[in-house]
């Protein structure tokens, strides 16, 4: 029974990571109606930046904040340089640019930081397990951080003028311009935020799965699955979906298929959701952009 409870809680901890990445995906989806295939690679790159800063002697949380800021700036820059010129191009072009971005960022990571697997520190080191062996310090800490980030993002979108303007720009760009919103910058800001949230996810997951250039590939898949499960146009849905997928994955891994088919579980969830309920659990009906 303890085993099951621990699997469940561990699932929540990884689910938090999926939820963050899913949220990043949904933010870009809401702003641009595209899914950023390079989101995982960007997060990995950010995590390597964090590791470099920590190894240079900075305290963990200073490195953490710096990494988030740098990632935000990189996200904005990528939107300005790569996405803006093709904003009116067909979907195929966007997918192509995302793939190009994935290749560039993914390989740049290996090129700059090396291909060896590295240990990434956790700020929540604790001796053994807490609460009678149910949860490790890192699991608890990373879940709290993830929830805090999600809460911040929620507050930002719900209760600040800038957040409101970003939502407006996503829903109705033409009307947004008429009230003076600089729509192009809102998109860039969305990219920046997504990159920052992705960076946090990367730093939280790296102590568990170890850091290497392909660290996020599987996580991205689970995040896709979570985003789709919750409804790709619904940030809260994406978060719930992310947590659900995390628990599902852990339970399936422990009791049903074993760890060898983890990615296939994600694929199955994605196909299942798309076939059975394409709008996800909480989403509005999906309009396909063919």
């Amino acid at each position: 029974m303890d085993g099951l409870a621990h699997q469940f809680i561990a699932g929540i901890a990884t689910g938090g990571i999926y939820a963050s990445v899913a949220l990043a995906l949904v933010m870009i989806y809401q702003a641009t109606h595209h899914v950023n295939f390079a989101q995982g690679e960007m997060a990995t790159f950010s995590t390597f930046i964090a590791l470099t800063l920590i190894q240079a002697g900075l305290p963990y949380w200073v490195a953490f904040v710096l990494t988030v800021v740098v990632s935000f700036a990189l996200g904005v820059a990528i939107e300005r340089v790569l996405m803006r010129p093709v904003q009116h191009a067909p979907v195929l072009t966007h997918v192509g640019v995302f793939i190009g971005l994935l290749l560039i960022v993914g390989n740049l990571t290996g090129w700059v930081f090396g291909y060896t697997t590295k240990v990434f520190p956790s700020p929540f080191e604790s001796e053994g397990l807490l609460f009678g062996g149910l949860v490790s310090g890192h699991e608890l800490g990373s879940t709290v951080v993830t929830l805090a980030v999600l809460l911040l993002v929620y507050l930002f979108f719900r209760h600040t003028t800038l957040g409101l303007a970003m939502r407006a720009a996503a829903y109705n760009p033409a009307s947004s311009r008429l009230v003076g919103i600089r729509v192009g910058w809102m998109l860039a800001l969305g990219w920046g935020l997504a990159a920052a949230v992705g960076a946090v996810a990367g730093m939280m997951v790296a102590p568990v799965v170890f850091l290497d250039p392909t660290m996020m590939l599987g996580i991205l898949l689970y995040a896709f699955a979570g985003a789709l499960l919750g409804g790709i146009d619904n940030p809260m849905g994406a978060v719930v979906g992310g947590f659900a997928v995390g628990v599902l994955e852990n339970l399936a891994g422990a009791y049903v298929v074993g760890t060898e088919l983890k990615l296939t579980v994600a694929l199955a969830i994605i196909i299942g959701v798309l076939v059975v309920r394409p709008s996800g659990l909480f989403g509005r009906v999906v309009l396909s952009r063919v």
Binding site: L164, A165, A168, Y171, S175, S176, L178, G180
Partner: peptide, 18 residues
């Protein structure tokens, strides 16, 4: 040009965005 998905309040706040 209504922001259909947003509330009346949010629509008005957007009017005063600048």
């Amino acid at each position: 040009g209504t922001f259909m998905e947003l509330t009346v309040e949010e629509n008005m706040r957007l009017g005063a965005y600048t």
